[in-house]
Amino acid sequence: MAIYGLIASVIGVVAALWIDWFPPAAVQEAKDIDTLWDVLLIVSVPIFVLVMVVVIYCVRAFKARPGDMGDGEPIHGNTMLEVVWVAVPFVIVSVLAVYGWIVLDDIEAKKPDRLQVEVRGQQFIWRYEYPNPTGGKEKVKSYDLVVPTGRQVEFNINTDDVIHDFWIPAFRLKIDAVPGITTHWRATPSEKGSYDVLCAELCGLGHSTMRGSVRVVAPEEYDAWLSKTAAKAAEEG
């Protein structure tokens, strides 16, 4: 039974790690989260396999023969065994909780010189506001989300109407946009490209159409885009 369990666990873990679970990552923080996921898989698969193997073994080994009207052995418990299956899961979840906590602290760590981007949700679109490149107080408003690589971006999220949820799968992070308060998350874009922006909290009729995209570009390209957008906005007054 142990052999079968071991083989099944190895196959299960390899298969679970082989699956390409996540969409491409575009931020530095993603690596920690993806590794955490792999660790959870490596811990989970053998536990599931253990349960399956013992159940299947029991069914095969202790199945009643036709006409067998007897009873099983009257085993009422086993203190040693019960202590083990209280202690082992306790240790496993404690270790995982501590590990999860450490990762949480890491991915939420604030870096200096953050780019502040205001995000506003409304039924059913996202709007963004960027710091003025000329240093003015007036924010640069746009319906496009463009962020530079190599610099931590702090998203300050708010909503005009109901609850939305600002989610960029490639950035791995999401948080609700809640009426009355401003919520935040931070990520450091590292891979250039275009990625989906979604609303992940049911916000009404058009919820499933509340999809947009984010462009991760080189810092120079970001500066150029911002100046252009600011100039255009000034022109339109």
Partner: peptide, 20 residues
């Protein structure tokens, strides 16, 4: 299986990603 995915969901950084 449902219990195990529950443990996975409890780990905050993973939950933030897979919530909703």
């Amino acid at each position: 299986l449902g219990g195990i995915s529950g443990i996975v969901l409890a780990v905050i950084p993973v939950d933030i990603y897979v919530s909703d």
